[in-house]
């Protein structure tokens, strides 16, 4: 009986994978993404951070925008590996390149495109997402319509590039077509035994929407080149009820 049930689980898992592939938008990368702890990965379809799709990040003040960029820099470390090249498109140079070192990235492997006009930012992000040779594209943009986001999603479905769209200082975020929607806000850091000094960057990560996954909220720290969960009793992951992917 036991072997029968395990084989049934295997079959279901296999079918789920096939359905995911049919639904599109989830690309099986050759190299699995390993930046998260297992507990966190349960939020994603197939227990794996989806690559080859567009992710939406929302920030509403400069501090949160920086925290979001820190989280993106951490993601890039795992998306780029040693050889990948990334385009960082924004309306002006917000990032101070040496700081990317702290998130395990070689700043000279990131090419920044600073175009002052919003249409140009959008065009550049779309062109970059079509380029299969890039490992990831970060786009910092404030106004993004549903139609435009759909175009970006279609671009990545062809090229399997991971698009990280950071909607900077957006006051009332509209619905866009992305596989996930995240909000990242800074949290007070802490040292063991309450030692003085500023600790590792710590954020509250809210995954508001994830296609075929379980939304939730976590407290995380960037430590040893990984996102490490910080235990927090106050957070109840069921606050965000599972909703249908859209």
């Amino acid at each position: 009986m036991a072997s029968q049930s395990t084989s049934r689980i295997d079959i279901i898992r296999q079918l789920q994978g096939e359905v995911l592939a049919l639904q599109g938008g989830v690309h099986r990368a050759a190299r699995p993404f390993q930046g998260f702890q297992a507990a966190f990965e349960y939020a994603f379809p197939g227990q794996r951070f989806p690559t080859g799709v567009t992710h939406e990040f929302i920030s509403q003040n400069p501090e949160a925008a920086t925290a979001t960029n820190g989280f993106l820099a951490g993601l890039l470390h795992h998306l780029l590996g040693n050889e990948g090249i990334c385009l960082w498109v924004s309306s002006r140079q917000y990032i101070f390149p040496p700081a990317l070192r702290a998130f395990g990235n070689a700043p000279d492997r990131v090419v920044f495109i600073n175009c002052p006009r919003p249409q140009e930012v959008l065009w550049t992000i779309e062109e970059a997402l079509k380029c299969e040779a890039l490992s990831a594209v970060v786009g910092e943009i404030t106004h993004l319509g549903f139609k435009e986001s759909r175009r970006l999603q279609l671009a990545v479905e062809q090229s399997h590039v991971t698009g990280l769209l950071h909607r900077r200082l957006v006051s009332a975020p509209n619905i866009v077509a992305c596989a996930t929607r995240w909000v990242i806000t800074p949290l007070p850091s802490a040292w063991q035994d309450n030692m003085p000094g500023v600790g590792f960057p710590r954020w509250r990560i809210k995954l508001l929407k994830v296609k075929n996954g379980r939304p939730g909220a976590w407290d995380m720290e960037w430590r040893d080149s990984r996102f490490q969960l910080v235990p927090n009793d106050r957070l109840v992951n069921d606050t965000f009820t599972q909703r249908k992917a859209g």
């Binding site: 090249i85 385009l87 920044f112 495109i113 040779a133």
Partner: peptide, 21 residues
Amino acid sequence: AIAQLLDRIAGKIGGHTICRY
């Protein structure tokens, strides 16, 4: 491919917008 992409970007919005540090 990346060289071509950057060439296209430089052609459309100008080479000064592309920065590597």
